[in-house]
Write a protein that binds this DNA or RNA. Structure first.
Lengths: 110, 110
DNA sequence: CGAACCTTCACACGCATGTGATAAGGTTGG
DNA sequence: CCAACCTTATCACATGCGTGTGAAGGTTCG
């Protein structure tokens, strides 16, 4: 059986809400095909991406901006150089920790 | 002369507002020493970090969360692996572009 | 046909970020 | 001494994210 799930079924299957699946599509994170009538059609690849995305967020507390930024880092070497430089100089001073920690807590309780 | 600037002078020198220097300190990004009376004392290293931070934001449109996340990527290899994996699988489908672009535009016009 | 889905669109909310303004009070230097 | 700084602490605000919820209407299937 070719698994073809509508948005509600895919939501139930992956632990998201239907609302969020639409949101994720809107932002180009997981974009399903469409049926002739316009219904979203989720198949295995989409389901897997939804699951792994959920896990990424759950275990590391990432938000979508983080993913987008990671992507920029991979494809803008100039940017990566600049950031690495700044971080190297910055690493010894300043209590960055709180920032990460607060965010981590925030997203874990959500 | 040992350059020792108060918050207002440092602001004028680096293109930030005094308000923002206090904000940056509060979040551990650039933390100046203090005079006996409690005044913030900015010296050369702080001034340089302020300037390069300004440039980082201006030329790449980063926000502080981006810096914090870049820092996590460097010191949590587990995280980096997971993110790289997801991005690799995600790269061929989905129009990520808008996300980065919208943010870039947003921060450039600001 | 009718229930149970789906579609888009929109309003709304809580929280965080980045920023300004302003108040009440301490410090400094000519 | 007094002007011009500084301090902390608030209130305010626009913007954005991640969500829920609901309306108004189309689709599917028994």
């Amino acid at each position: 059986m070719e698994e073809k799930l509508t948005v509600g079924a895919a939501a139930a299957e992956t632990g998201w809400s239907a609302r969020m699946l639409r949101y994720l599509e809107e932002h180009g994170l997981v974009v399903p095909a469409r049926s002739p009538a316009g219904y979203r059609v989720y198949r295995l690849p989409e389901l897997n991406r939804l699951r792994s995305l959920r896990d990424l967020r759950r275990s590391f507390g990432l938000d979508l901006a983080d993913l987008a930024f990671a992507r920029r880092l991979r494809r803008e070497p100039e940017l990566k150089r600049a950031v690495d430089n700044w971080l190297a100089a910055a690493d010894d001073s300043g209590s960055w920790v709180e920032w990460e920690q607060r965010k981590h807590e925030r997203l874990l309780t959500a």
